[in-house]
C-alpha cells in the first residue's frame, strides 16, 4: 500500500538534488538518488535557527562552546568564532555527513572533520582577520589522498559540493508548495 504524502510544514524548504535525465553521468553518486530530499530548512529564521533543530548542529555547538570555555585564554573573539561556525554549519550539515565533529584549533581556526560513506573531509576555516574568509580543505577516499583546496569560503563550498555531487550537477532550493 502506498504511503500517503505528508506535506512539509509551512515555511519549510526542501532541498532537492536535481540531475539531468542520464544517470550514467553520476557514477560516484550512487548514494544519492534523483530528487532525493537531502535536508530541510526553515526559511524564516536566522542562520542559526535554520538548523537549530538538527541534533548534529546542537552537538557541534555544544562541543564548540565547551572548547571555547577551555581555550578562552587563547581566543577572545567569540562573536567571530560563532559567525564562522554557523556559516559553515549551514552548508556542511546539508551534506548530511555520517559523522561530524568540530574543533577549535591552536591554529587560529575552526576545523570540521566529517565522514560520508568512504570519504573523510577536513574543512578548516580561519578566524583571525589576516586570514578572514580563508578555507583549506583536504579529503580522502578510503585511505587514498585526494587533491586539496584552498580559497575563500564560497569557492571552497562550491568545490566541496562538486566533490559530493560530481560531474557538475547542482543543488537547487526547491519550494514544493
Amino acid at each position: 500500500m502506498a504511503t500517503a504524502y505528508v506535506p512539509p510544514e509551512p515555511d519549510t524548504v526542501i532541498i532537492r538534488y536535481l540531475e539531468e535525465d542520464n544517470p550514467s553521468i553520476y557514477p560516484h553518486s550512487g548514494w544519492l538518488e534523483r530528487n532525493t530530499i537531502i535536508g530541510y530548512m526553515d526559511v524564516t529564521g536566522s542562520d542559526l535557527s535554520v538548523i537549530e533543530s538538527n541534533n548534529k548542529f546542537i552537538n557541534l555547538l555544544t562541543s564548540l562552546n565547551e572548547q571555547f570555555s577551555q581555550l578562552s585564554h587563547y581566543y577572545n573573539n567569540q562573536p567571530r568564532i560563532n559567525k564562522v561556525f554557523s556559516q559553515a554549519c549551514s552548508y556542511l550539515l546539508e551534506l548530511n555527513p555520517d559523522k561530524i565533529s568540530v574543533e577549535l584549533t591552536y591554529n587560529d581556526s575552526i576545523e570540521f572533520a566529517f565522514k560520508k560513506n568512504d570519504f573523510t573531509f577536513f574543512f578548516e576555516l580561519f578566524i583571525e582577520d589576516s586570514h578572514a574568509d580563508e578555507v583549506i580543505y583536504s579529503s580522502y577516499y578510503k585511505s587514498t589522498k585526494r587533491p586539496s583546496y584552498a580559497g575563500d569560503f564560497i569557492s571552497a563550498i562550491n568545490s566541496l559540493y562538486k566533490d559530493f555531487f560530481p560531474h557538475h550537477p547542482y543543488i537547487s532550493f526547491d519550494l514544493l508548495r
Binding site: 584549533t105 591554529n107 576545523e111 572533520a113 573523510t120 577536513f122 578548516e124 580561519f126 586570514h131 580563508e134 583549506i136 583536504s138 580522502y140 585511505s143 589522498k145 586539496s148 584552498a150
Partner: peptide, 18 residues
C-alpha cells in the same frame, strides 16, 4: 607564505587520518 598554512593543514589532517 600562504602555502605554509596549507602544508600545516596537510600534516595535521594526514595524522588525524592515520
Amino acid at each position: 607564505k600562504g602555502w605554509s598554512e596549507r602544508l600545516a593543514h596537510e600534516t595535521r589532517s594526514l595524522i588525524r587520518m592515520f
